[in-house]
């Protein structure tokens, strides 16, 4: 199986400084696979997705490293060309459905503008596509939804719209940025299953950003564990769950709440493990400082 997404030695820094927010990140995701990016908040997991799509905040810039999609190195492309590749081959399922839709535009154009503007589709064809996808995410009255404004839809509906929109251009890669975090627990499971089903059906490669190891176990085939913008461990899901190589991974697994014994399962990550993590980061920073 060939790797679709490949990141090698990616370093991102606060603009104009040598302070790193992503530390020598390397990972590869095979075509059609779901790769989890797991870490505590601030571990840099969303940052990796943003770096791939070229939407890093202004204060952060990529200092070195290579990101390639289907063998195409994004870094060497001129801006226009890179935007075209990003626009036609990738998509995002965002974290918060309440803020990810433009409040003053109707759903229809927001779903289809990528198709008509970036890919040059006819308007009617794009609309048909949007209707089909809304049906696929089990929205009952898709015609009406296309003509609605975001504030006329519930949070769950909006997230389904965003999922449908993400698949609209049949992207090769979808970055799912904590797609269920902002939702009610009651709809979380349903949305998660919907994303997983659509990923399987469309055969899309997916980068799944989450802090929830339970979610990872359910949808991902492989996973990278992050701390302070550094990959602690990259492994396939079975290995990670049964025989974690890194003590930090083991500590995270031990800290995952379980229904059977909730009290005992809430173990904080021990100081020894954190000291080990800090040591690894220090070692990497020393190397970086010399470079």
């Amino acid at each position: 199986m060939s790797a679709y997404l490949e990141i090698t030695g990616l370093n991102a820094v606060l603009r104009g400084t040598r302070t790193r927010v992503l530390r020598d990140v390397s990972l590869s995701v095979s075509k059609g696979q779901v790769h989890g990016l797991v870490g505590e908040s601030g571990a840099g997991k969303s940052m990796i997705g943003k770096a791939i799509l070229g939407v890093l905040p202004r204060a952060i810039e990529v200092a070195s490293g290579r990101i390639s999609l289907g063998g195409q190195d994004l870094g060497v492309l001129p801006l226009r060309e890179r935007l075209r590749v990003i626009g036609s081959q990738t998509a995002v399922i965002p974290q918060d459905p309440l803020t990810a839709l433009n409040p003053s535009r109707r759903i229809g154009p927001q779903m289809t503008d990528r198709l008509t503007r970036t890919l040059g589709w006819q308007k009617t064809r794009a609309n048909h596509r949007a209707l089909d996808l809304l049906e696929e995410v089990a929205i009952r009255d898709p015609e009406r939804v296309l003509h609605s404004y975001p504030h006329e839809l519930s949070g769950g509906m909006r997230q389904r719209v965003l999922i449908a929109a993400a698949f609209a251009a049949e992207p090769k890669l979808i970055v799912a940025d904590e797609p269920t975090t902002a939702l009610d627990v009651t709809v979380q499971k349903q949305i998660l299953k919907m994303i997983a089903d659509m990923q399987t059906r469309h055969g899309t490669t997916m980068l799944f950003v989450t802090h929830d190891l339970g979610v990872v176990a359910r949808v991902c085939q492989s996973v990278s564990i992050l701390h302070s913008g550094m990959v602690m461990e990259e492994a396939d899901i079975r290995t990670m769950l049964t025989a974690p190589a890194h003590p930090y991974t083991a500590a995270l697994l031990a800290a995952t709440p379980r229904y059977t014994d909730p009290e005992a399962s809430l173990v904080p990550v021990s100081d020894t493990v954190l000291a080990g993590v800090a040591e690894a980061i220090r070692a990497s920073d020393t190397l970086w400082g010399r470079a």
Partner: peptide, 27 residues
């Protein structure tokens, strides 16, 4: 320009200029 829907529009392959006029200006 910091809002999520603008970031999302950028990830659709739109240039900064297009993003400003289509997504940000009206709001």
């Amino acid at each position: 320009m910091h809002l999520d829907y603008v970031t999302l529009a950028r990830a659709k392959g739109f240039t900064e200029n297009q993003v400003i006029w289509r997504e940000a200006m009206r709001n």
